[in-house]
Amino acid sequence: MSDETQDNKHAPNVTRRRFLTALVTVSGAAVAGTIVVPMVKSLDPTAAAAALATTTIDLNPIEPGMQMVALWQEKPVIVVNRTPEMLATLDETAQKGLLKDPNCNVPQQPPYCKNKYRSRVPEWYVGIKICNHLCCIPHYRPKKASVAPWWLGGFHCPCHGSMYDLSARVIKGSPAPHNMAVPEYDIDVEKKSVVVTKMYPLAHLC
């Protein structure tokens, strides 16, 4: 372009401009991406948080019929050592038709816990002790008739009266919609230890 006219009238090469604008836009978006992607990534859980992500619970102090609560990722994890009598109540609640979801069809637990015990090993129940109605912490009420005359043992929420059996399956008439959540865990019965690894992603906490 070397025309020496005084006015600014000359035909701009529109195609070339559009093409270059597109190139600048695309590469500019990529540059923005190199800044934005790490920025969003930096809000992921930190390595320090990941180091606290698993919890090992020692089962030795838990005697038959007793329970223990451990704090895991700011949530209470309950471990119950169930006696044969307690395990027998699980069939009873189901047969009496007391339960909303006796067969655990709602994925509130990992597939390996989709059974009436809702656990890897029948005696040891491991679960998140949070009522999925409005996030309260239910009480452990193992004694028969301790909550109602027909009570066979289970969990009772102090906030709105939700009731669960000893596998934390919700009882009909409770405001809570689902069974209590079970996290993913590994259990070593010989070494008597449970390692809670992560939350089961499909489970509703509350």
Binding site: M39, S42, T46, A47
Partner: peptide, 12 residues
């Protein structure tokens, strides 16, 4: 901790 533990913390 930002440098070591946060993803891309060093970049920030």
């Amino acid at each position: 901790g930002i440098m070591y533990d946060v993803h891309y913390g060093w970049l920030m």
